[in-house]
Design a protein around this nucleic acid. Structure first.
Length: 485
RNA sequence: GGGCACGUAGGCUAACGGCAGGCCACCAGGUUCUCAGCCUGACAGCGAGGGUUCGAUUCCCUCCGUGCCUACCA
């Protein structure tokens, strides 16, 4: 039997990091077994679903390389893959269940349901549908419907005994059937709820393994009941853990970035984010932390997924991202930096800059800040920054003037610049740092930069000398003088 | 409240019932003109209590903690 799995995101809001997480496990499992990975859009919530959101799901998953074998955009033999285009199917199946006696029409109003819930809460009972319409004669409900009352279809669940199922990640799970509510299958607008649509589609699309988030465990008995009353073979159940915020609650945008677009905009590499996501619950043999999707696929098995909910650790993500950034060939890194500002810069200059910042990029969007001083003429910094803690203004003035003079007479390559500046420090009888730091600040405006010699080299003679002049002028000016580059 | 799930250092994780190991973060050194990177080292853990066993992180029970679900959302 061919392994067929799917993810079924609902297109509401930004594309979620949890979607990518579950997609990764699904896709890896399908491809490891030579099967198919499907993307199905669960847009049965007519109020919240949007086309823009759907598009973003396609784009973000595509960005991550988590491509699908069948889906709304590319089609496939089991389409349509958008639930809004399958509404008649669900209606037909729901009414079929009523005819079989496995489901029933319900005309209870929202007001009544709320009142029932309130009463149950007051009596400290579990909030649950009270079976009002289930117990009414069918003719009575029929009469109300014919009179124009809105109706829904509910699944008949409550009964004795237990619902047991095997979960690949967790082992055997048991629910008492009397804990399970008479779930609404078809809403009053004629559209299905998740539960109905999900089961019908998974069956018709021949899904073999349902790999989904842990939050669905509680609903699984309803789904099993549906498979039972339809007379269908249920899939293999695999509930993977939920990604967590630092406080261990379900990951949420208030407490942690969840939008895949955010990660893209920050300049996390897609392969790094996927690698990091894999680390949340999956582990490679021999403690490997950095690996490709192909390597993961080789060693992956659903039953190796850790069942505990992992805290999404941004610091480790940064580390993983750094690993990937440093591994990139310089030209490739330059290309990837394009959208982060490098596209607007002279390619030849970018090519010289990239090696200087490759070890210093945490995310690609650091590019702008890290390279700002290579562009433009004016530098904005306080004159005081030029003067070290153990230095006096006259000291620094002397260093800068001497450095300016020396550099003006030095061939402009890193090796020569370093040699001459170090000689100068010796001549002036100061530590290298005491000379280098003021020069660094003078030509870059900051105290943390790539090595000074290479920075000077890329910056060029003309610009470097001009900035030294500006720094000397800045120090000569009255203490609180405004910036005059 | 009820149901279910989950507990290995601050975070992610590994370990046929047999010496608890790796990564991130943190800290300390080294490299060095600063920062970053890189190298070395240090710190740090089986939620608690019972039971089974020669032996329990591992199996069982109880407790505790945490999370999810408890919608005509998914």
């Amino acid at each position: 039997m061919t392994v067929r799995v799917r993810i079924a995101p609902s297109p509401t809001g930004d594309p979620h990091v949890g979607t990518a997480y579950v997609a990764l496990f699904n896709r890896t499992w399908a491809h490891k077994n030579g099967g198919q990975f499907l993307l199905r859009i669960e847009d049965t919530d007519r109020v919240r679903s949007t086309k823009e959101s759907e598009k973003m799901i396609f784009d973000s998953l595509g960005w991550l390389g988590l491509t699908w074998d069948e889906g709304p955009d590319i089609g496939g033999p089991f389409g349509p893959y958008r639930q809004s285009e399958r509404v008649e199917t669900y209606l037909k199946h729901a009414t079929g269940l009523v005819e079989k006696g496995a489901a029933y029409y319900c005309t209870c109003t929202a007001d009544r349901l709320e009142a029932v819930r309130k009463a149950q809460a007051a009596a400290k009972l579990a909030p649950r549908y009270d079976g009002h319409c289930r117990n009414l004669p069918a003719t009575e409900v029929r009469k109300q419907i014919d009179a124009g009352a809105p109706w829904v279809i509910r699944l008949k669940v409550a009964s004795d005994g237990e619902c047991r199922f095997k979960d690949v990640v967790r082992g055997e799970v048991v629910f008492a059937w009397d804990q399970i509510d008479d779930q609404i299958l078809l809403k009053s607008d004629g559209w299905p709820t998740y539960h109905l649509a999900n089961v019908v589609d998974d069956h018709l699309m021949e899904i073999t393994h349902v790999i989904r988030a842990e939050e669905w465990i509680s609903s699984t008995p309803k789904h099993i009941k549906l498979y039972e009353v339809f007379g269908w073979e249920p899939p293999v159940w695999c509930h993977v853990p939920l990604l967590r915020n630092k406080d261990r609650t379900k990951i949420s945008k208030r407490k942690n970035p969840t939008s895949l677009r955010w990660y893209e905009e920050q300049g996390y590499l897609p392969e790094a984010l996927v690698n990091f996501l894999a680390l949340m619950g999956f582990s490679m043999p021999e403690n490997r932390e950095i690996f490709t999707p192909a390597e993961m696929q080789e060693h992956f098995h659903i039953d190796r997924i850790n069942a505990g909910g992992p805290v999404f650790d941004m610091e480790k993500l940064d580390w993983v991202n750094g690993q990937y950034i440093r591994k990139l060939p310089a030209e490739e890194l330059a290309r990837r930096l394009g959208p982060f500002g490098a596209a607007g810069h002279d390619p030849a200059l970018v090519a010289r800059i990239v090696p200087l910042i490759q070890d210093r990029l945490r995310v690609l969007s650091d590019y702008k800040d890290l390279t700002a001083f290579f562009f433009g003429d004016a530098l904005a910094y306080e004159a005081a920054t030029l003067v070290g803690k153990k230095q006096t203004v006259p000291d620094v003035q002397g260093h800068l003037r001497a450095a300016r003079e020396t550099l003006a007479a030095t061939p402009w390559d890193a090796a020569a610049l370093e040699t001459r500046l170090k000689e100068l420090a010796a001549t002036r009888n100061v530590k290298v740092g005491e000379l280098f730091m003021p020069v660094r600040v003078a030509v870059t405006g900051r105290t943390a930069t790539p090595p000074l010699d290479r920075t000077l080299e890329v910056l060029g003679r003309e610009r470097s000398l001009a900035r030294l002049d500006a720094a000397i002028a800045k120090l000569a000016a009255p203490a609180k003088a405004p910036e005059t580059p």
